[in-house]
Structures are given as structure tokens and as C-alpha cells.
Design a protein around this nucleic acid. Structure first.
Lengths: 339, 339
DNA sequence: ATGAAAGCGCTAACAA
DNA sequence: TTGTTAGCGCTTTCAT
């Protein structure tokens, strides 16, 4: 047992010559205390450096004002931005974030279990999803859950995703009308929905179209270095692509450098490169990557508003939400067929 | 009051036909319970979906296994990396992070106060420092504090910094021996120690040396776009620098693009650019920025080990720690004077 | 408006 | 090994 030095409401009450209830009331906004007692308590509290124990309080009021946040993806700067915004938004509403990291879907249940033990009021899960059993536990515990970049029909939880299939079709249309013929699909983490759904849509569109097809599909290629190497490898293959669609911007930038610097290719004339995420660097002068701008702010807004609403009204039904991504045309894809 | 649905040790005890203490003991590693009771309890617990309330527990054991983390800087990817690593490391030790954001030093006290109310076992403050009064409160509360990238002689808290002055001298020596003569210093957030100390050291070295001097010092220039604009502005000034030392990599990359793309300057022949941070992009082929590699991992290790040690032994004295940064020579500074 | 008493869910000392 | 008892620091009826 540690030496204990924190002052309690008891001591404040003693010094102020009032009851513990009076102390409690002065620190409860909107409770009825006379100005006289309030002053006495506030003075005593200041003198002793008293600060109510939020945890003891939570035991009684059945709300910790803590939100559990599980992060399963850190690669993409995109997620950092989310983390920051979540923190700021909830902080402004008087909540704090209890942060846990999970390697993948596999670790999510452990993280959620831990957060549940800490009695979080709500749960935000970024880029991963809990098992059905765990989701049910959350529901039984009355803890609302919002899934970011994941969704599941069998799980009763709100979700925020973006319409990846539509974006896939948009990309395909763009490449087709610019006269590209041989598309390669590069996937990062094979578990991340965004890339998968988008690639599926492109495959489907390619199957329907003619003159243009998917000539390669690689997976597990994530980050600048991996991208740079991947394009070099592709050029050793029998059939070289003339367009590469990539499920993360850093990877796409690596491909861009690999193509230009290592392979001495002209982009976008000989090769088109499309990214995903629209990270700041993609707009930088040396790159000017054509990519997909993920509606981060909109997604964050949806998630925050939904969770807050569920916190207010526990009866509310969870709902799936979709934000609209946007194709950003820059210089790594040509606009019309070559002369 | 919300509808309440969480199962307590009481119900488990009832179903298992034992006392609440027996339940507590089965969930306390290393307590003495017979296998028979343990089994009965575990069965009952599973049946009811019981999970001990970590907060009620913390009230008794006087430890929440929560670490408060205050983040005051998010611009630099460097800090994201820290956040992630802190989360993973402490999670592995059975701690969780309670995350708060603070705009600047001004907001830190509020954040710390809040975290103290949540009875965090320890406090990590990144790139900001609390007031002396608040630091004293932490001490009185017996909550160890580790400051990252800040230190203060008047505050009793551990701190992890890197030897910015030494790095400043190294940079100066590099520029001098390569024959650069007119140095410009670009500062981001004027409150961040790293840049300030480094610039001070460069100024000092310049005052002592001859033939080479500091021709400009600008402040509040943070991020790619700001950097790109800043170099354009500099070229309109009476005296143009031939070397720019920058206190953040993204800014340096903006300067690089501004110099090459907008001003059509030859780097490193006509202009040297030095960054700070060594973010991944700095090593990318299109940039190859000469910069300072901050010893992030070492800093994280020092911080984690120190905090863990203080958590173990509250009597331990706080201590200042310094990690050694390293100059990374790439292609944005020439090695020897031009012929 | 105020205080006394009860109790949130848990663990720890003590007896048995 | 087990149950009983007390109490962590707080809020909330319920009388007054």
C-alpha cells in the first residue's frame, strides 16, 4: 500500500465546518448550496488543494466521461489526424479518451474487454472490428460503439465508412477515358476494407469494359520503400502495367519515385499512378499525385455526433453512415489519350 | 440515472454460492483460492458475463493503472510515433493511456488537473510544461511526471530532451567547412525548445567565427506550404542566404521545393537546406534532405523506463535525461567548398 | 439549505 | 482457505 496523501471531501468538510454533502454539492454544478457555505467550502478546498476524485464519483453517477478508443492502424497519417480530432472534440465536451492499440482485428477484443472494465461511456474503434460476441457484450453493458472504416451487418454498432466502390468506379472511368489499358492494383494491409472494396469495384468494372484490364494485383505492399521496390519488380514481369492504383498515398509516392528515378519512366505519359488518402505530401511540388481525398473531417464529425447522441440517449439505434470521398486530379494521371 | 445492467461480484458470488471475497480472490492473481471455488466462480462469472470493475478496484488498491498523456504538439509526425509507442509500451505493462490535448503551455495545467482528478498513476507531458504550482500539486499527489522535449530547473519532474546545442554546433561546423557564408534560421512554433536552443547555439558559433554569419532569422514558419512561401519571400530581401537551417522537416521540404521549383535554384550548390526530425519523406528520392535525426526511440525508452521506475518506487528522485541527436548527411548540403 | 445515513463495486484485515 | 466486516471517496435520498 502506497503512502497516501490526497485530500478527501471529508477533510475539506472538517476544515470548512460543514458536512461532506455540502462539499459534494459545491462541486456539483446546479446543486442547491447557499453562497455562505459555498464560500467556506471553496476556501477550505483551495487551502488544502482539494480536487474531487472523478473515479469515486463515477461509481455513483454511473458515468466515467471516458471514451475508449482502439487504434488498429497507425501507418497512414490520416489516422493521426483522426486521433487528434477525436481527442479535441471529446475533450471539449468534457470527455477524455482512454487509448488502446491493437495490432489487428485479433487484438481488438482484448482491448475492448479492457476498456469495458474501465467502464468507458462509449467506444470508438478505428480500422478494426470486434468479434460478434464482444459486440454483444458491449450492447449488454449499454456501451455504444462506433466503428470507423469498418462495418459489419451482424454487429449492432454504428459505423462510418466511405463509399469505396463508387471511388473505384470513378478511378476506373478516369483511367479508361485517358486511354490507359493495363491496370495494376496494389494493396497495403490486405485486411483494410477501403482498399479491398475499391479494388473489387475496379475489377468488376474491368470485367465489364473492354480494351482495358487488370494485369496484376499485389498485396501486402505498404509504405514508401515497399512501393518503390514494387514498381521495380513489376517492370521485370512479363506484362507491364501502364497504370498503377495504390491503396495508400505513401506507397503511391514510392511508386512514383521508383518509376521516375529508378526506371526513368515518364509519368503520367508512360505510367499513371493513383493514390489513396491525399496526405499533405501528395500535393507537394515534387509529386503532385492524383489521388483520392478521404473525407476525414466529415467522417470524424459523423462519428463524434453519433457517439454523443448515443451517450445522450441510450435507446437510440446504431446506424451505418457513409461519407463521400473525392477524386483529386493532379499530375500523375494524364487527362486524355496520347496523340 | 441510466438503466443499469452490469453484473457485480455480488451476483457472481450468489450464483456460485460463495462470498464476494472469494470472487475477488479468483480474479486477483496470486491470491489463495482452492481450485474448487475458483472453478465455481469462473463458471458463474462466465455465465453472467462478469468483468471486475477496474475503477472500483482502483479506489481500494490506490492505483488506476492509467497513465495521463498530454500532447501539445501534433504537427510533426515525430510525435505521432511517440504516441503510438507510448501506447504500446505501457499497454504491454498493463497500463492504459488517458489522452488529453493541449494547445500550448497555457492549456497544460487544465489538462493535468483533469488527469489528476482521474487519479492517473503517472504523467507524460509531450512538448509542453506545467506551471510550477501544478508541478507541485503533482508531487504532493505522489504522481511522477516525465517531460518530453522540455525541461525546467524549477520543476521537480524527470525530463527527456536531446542535446540541441551540440547539434547546432555540428550544423554550423558542417556549413562552415562546406564554405557557406550567409545562414538563415527558420523557426516553427517559437515556443518549442528544440529549435530555440539549436538556433541559439548557431548564433553563438556564428558570433565567434568569421566569414560566416546569420543573415536572417524568421519565426512562426511551420509546415510545407509556409516553407515554400518563406524561401520565395527571402529571395526578395536585400541579402539572400546561401544556407537555410530549419526547425522542422516538413518546412525544410517546402523550402527545398520552393528553391528548386519556384526559384530554379541549384541545391546544394547555390543553397543549402537543413531540416530537423528526419521524417520518412526526407529520405525519399525526390528530396534527400540533409537533416537531424532525432533519437525518438531512445527518448521513448528513457521516458518509459523512467516512469516505470518511479511507479515502482515513489521515493525515486526525478532526473533530467538527454538523448544524442545525429546529423544525417544527404544531398541538400554540399560537402566541400565549390571549386 | 443542510446533515445523517446508505450504498456504488470492490479489496483487505481479521477471525474462524 | 474462507466468510465477515470495514471502508476506499463520493453522491444521493430523506428528514429536518
Amino acid at each position: 500500500m502506497k503512502p497516501y496523501n490526497k485530500v478527501t471531501s471529508h477533510e475539506v468538510a472538517a476544515l470548512a465546518g460543514v458536512s461532506r454533502s455540502a462539499v459534494s454539492r459545491t462541486f456539483t454544478p446546479g446543486a442547491s448550496v447557499s453562497v455562505k457555505t459555498r464560500e467556506k467550502v471553496e476556501n477550505a478546498a483551495r487551502k488544502l488543494g482539494y480536487r474531487p476524485n472523478a473515479l469515486a464519483r463515477s461509481l455513483i453517477v454511473r458515468s466515467t466521461r471516458m471514451i475508449g478508443l482502439v487504434m488498429a492502424e497507425w501507418q497512414n497519417p490520416f489516422y493521426t489526424r483522426m486521433l487528434r480530432q477525436f481527442s479535441e472534440r471529446f475533450q471539449a465536451e468534457g470527455y477524455q479518451l482512454l487509448l488502446l492499440t491493437s495490432a489487428s482485428d485479433a487484438g481488438v477484443d482484448d482491448a475492448v474487454r479492457r476498456l469495458l472494465q474501465y467502464q468507458v461511456d462509449g467506444l470508438l474503434i478505428v480500422s478494426a472490428k470486434p468479434s460478434e460476441a464482444m459486440a454483444e457484450e458491449c450492447e449488454r453493458a449499454g456501451t455504444p460503439v462506433v466503428l470507423i472504416n469498418r462495418h459489419s451487418p451482424v454487429i449492432r454498432a454504428s459505423s462510418v465508412t466511405c463509399d469505396n466502390a463508387q471511388i473505384g468506379r470513378d478511378i476506373f472511368a478516369m483511367l479508361q477515358s485517358a486511354g490507359y489499358r493495363r491496370v495494376a492494383l496494389v494493396l497495403g494491409d490486405p485486411g483494410v476494407l477501403t482498399g479491398i472494396e475499391r479494388n473489387a469495384a475496379i475489377n468488376e468494372a474491368a470485367a465489364a469494359g473492354k480494351d482495358i484490364r487488370v494485369v496484376a494485383e499485389i498485396s501486402g505492399c505498404l509504405g514508401y520503400e515497399a512501393g518503390r521496390q514494387a514498381v521495380i519488380d513489376m517492370w521485370k514481369a512479363a506484362e507491364r502495367p501502364d497504370a498503377i492504383v495504390c491503396s495508400s498515398d505513401p506507397t503511391a509516392l514510392g511508386i512514383l519515385d521508383g518509376a521516375r528515378l529508378d526506371l526513368k519512366l515518364a509519368v503520367p505519359e508512360e505510367l499513371a499512378v493513383v493514390g489513396l488518402g491525399d496526405i499533405p505530401q501528395s500535393s507537394w511540388g515534387a509529386y503532385r499525385l492524383t489521388t483520392v481525398h478521404l473525407p476525414v473531417d466529415e467522417m470524424i464529425n459523423l462519428a463524434v455526433e453519433d457517439l454523443l447522441a448515443h451517450l445522450e440517449d441510450p435507446q437510440l439505434e446504431p446506424r451505418p453512415m457513409t461519407a463521400r470521398a473525392r477524386l483529386v486530379h493532379r499530375d500523375s494521371v494524364r487527362v486524355r489519350p496520347e496523340a
